[in-house]
């Protein structure tokens, strides 16, 4: 967190000073969240088209960040047509971008869990086929330490025993299929002493013919044991494959979840 506190605001000042140069597709709209980092991130992320704040992009966050290591974020942009990319980012995180999702044959809907290092806006930026960016988000409070504390599996020391284990299933929803899956992975941020960055960096979904229907870049600010919900425009079994920063690949086929109920109690 010291990193974000000390360096980023300075960077923001610098960028704001330079921001007189007209942005991309036009002027940046004023940030309704009043974030000190809005222009900094906007300049970097929003290439290729105009930027608007758009309430048709739904960013669902909990009332409170009960555990800042595992903060659920859901983005639902199904009210927009022609969505090409969904970028989820937290302005004041030392690793701002969490995921960069490309739903090719999938709905513009994604849920995952991220780490937060302090009170910050969490946003989704949705790019349409015409290049325009549609942005929404909210402030969420977090006590700190989400990115600069070691993951639980590091503390326990058992991360390697389960590395890459994949759990998940598919639920048919008519013409579409909901996929819920997660990998065991420490998702080290590189911000903890003596633990270099080590994270899953891509996730891809293929249909039964091996055609890619969705893909995602994943960053170190996604929570340990990263989990995802996607909705693909297909029926039938889906293959998911992830690769991490050391080149390891984890893959498996998500089977339809049957009607039989298992029980496990918290």
């Amino acid at each position: 967190m010291r990193i974000a506190n000390n360096i980023l605001p300075a960077a923001a000042t610098l960028v704001m000073a330079l921001a007189a140069s007209p942005a991309l597709g036009g002027e940046l709209p004023a940030d309704p969240l009043g974030s000190p980092m809005w222009e900094y991130h906007a300049e970097k992320l929003f290439t290729g088209g105009p930027v608007v704040f758009d309430s048709r992009v739904k960013v669902i966050l909990p009332v409170v960040a009960e555990d800042q290591h595992v903060v659920p974020v859901t983005v639902d942009a199904r009210k927009l047509d022609g969505v090409k990319r969904i970028v989820v980012f937290a302005d004041l995180n030392p690793i701002p971008v969490a995921i960069d999702y490309r739903p090719m044959d999938a709905a513009p809907f994604v849920a995952t869990r991220i780490k937060l290092d302090q009170r910050t806006p969490v946003r989704a930026a949705v790019q349409l086929a015409d290049g325009s960016w549609h942005v929404a988000g909210e402030w969420i409070d977090a006590a700190g330490g989400g990115c600069s504390a070691p993951p639980l599996s590091r503390v326990r020391g058992d991360w390697a025993d389960h590395l890459g284990e994949l759990r998940g299933a598919a639920w048919s929803e008519g013409d579409t299929t909901r996929l819920r899956f997660g990998f065991r992975h420490p998702m080290d941020t590189g911000l903890v002493e003596n633990i270099p960055a080590y994270n899953i960096e891509t996730v891809r979904v293929m249909d039964a013919d091996g055609r890619e229907v969705a893909s995602m870049d994943v960053y170190g600010s996604v929570a340990e044991d990263p989990a995802f919900t996607l909705v693909v425009d297909r029926d039938g079994p889906m293959e998911v494959a992830a690769r991490d920063t050391s080149g390891l690949e984890f893959a498996g086929e998500l089977a339809p979840m049957s009607g039989k109920k298992q029980t496990a109690k918290p």
């Binding site: 284990e165 998940g168 893959a251 086929e253 089977a255 298992q262």
Partner: peptide
């Protein structure tokens, strides 16, 4: 971690 099925690598 308990309820979702493990998928073979």
């Amino acid at each position: 971690a308990k309820l979702l099925p493990m998928v073979g690598n």
